[in-house]
Amino acid sequence: MIDPLVHARGLHKVFGELIAVDGIDFEVRPGEAFGFLGPNGAGKSSTMKMIGAVSPRTGGSLSVLGRDPDELGQEIRARLGVIPQEDNLDLELTVYENLLIYGRYFGMSRKVINERIDELLVFAQLDERRNSRVEPLSGGMKRRLTIARGLINTPELLLLDEPTTGLDPQARHLLWDRLYRLKQEGVTLIITTHYMDEAEQLCDRLVIMDKGQIVAEGSPRELIEQHSRREVLELRFPVGTQQEYATKLKGMAARTEVLPDRVLLYTDDADRTADEIHGAGITAESTVSRRSTLEDVFLRLTGRTLVD
């Protein structure tokens, strides 16, 4: 079996009184896209910073590229690409200059950097913006530049902390496409996200994090199969009556979940369940049937929604 690129056992991170990461175990294998899915405050960024060898762990063991970040942080960072949650580009500089100075931090020669920049600008679809200042660029362009910058040293492992948060749908799809290409080129990706669609699109395997702990692990499909039913029927009832209706609906589906504004029924065949409910004389204000997603898995495991 190939050694994992990242290997964590009982990994802990404590800030003063606050336990940000509470003893997590995971492994990331070469070539895979591995995800941390969880709501804000779950401890995803804290975990990424420990993997990125910029934040020392409080406890547990961690190996990145076969090294201990506490001892060989510099060597590890030389071989990583890091895309932080917030863009931290030099806004006064041009697109080209941002890439150039970053390459220089990795000790690359100008010649090698320039060749690499040519490739990366095409990859990030920024070649026409090469000499533009960064400040006025759109959010999506800045994000792509941050990703290109993270790739300047041809890293073996790319850490992406919420790569598409705050972007419009079009910009997100473009980014997903670029990340998908990287994956096909064999770059190992670690991605954090609180979007279940992003996790489903990009991740071969993921862990669901909540309050510093891992609550489930698997491929998106496995997680849905293990923790949810195939389909979901969403029923909306008049405000304040969701609980009352949920009681009436008991037994009509494998599981019911009551949210403030709707009732979710987990079932293998949403249309049939809808017919049965109708037959029992219960009418909802609106009815939506859909496939189960990681959001449903998260709800099942934690009792809360991912994005509120």
């Binding site: 510099q74 030389a78 890091v82 932080p84 931290n88 030099d90 970053y102 931090y105 990795f106 040293n153």
Partner: peptide, 14 residues
């Protein structure tokens, strides 16, 4: 404000 130091510290620079 810009967090450019974080960007630098993600590289081999200490």
């Amino acid at each position: 404000w810009r967090k450019t130091y974080d960007a630098i510290l993600s590289t081999p620079v200490t």
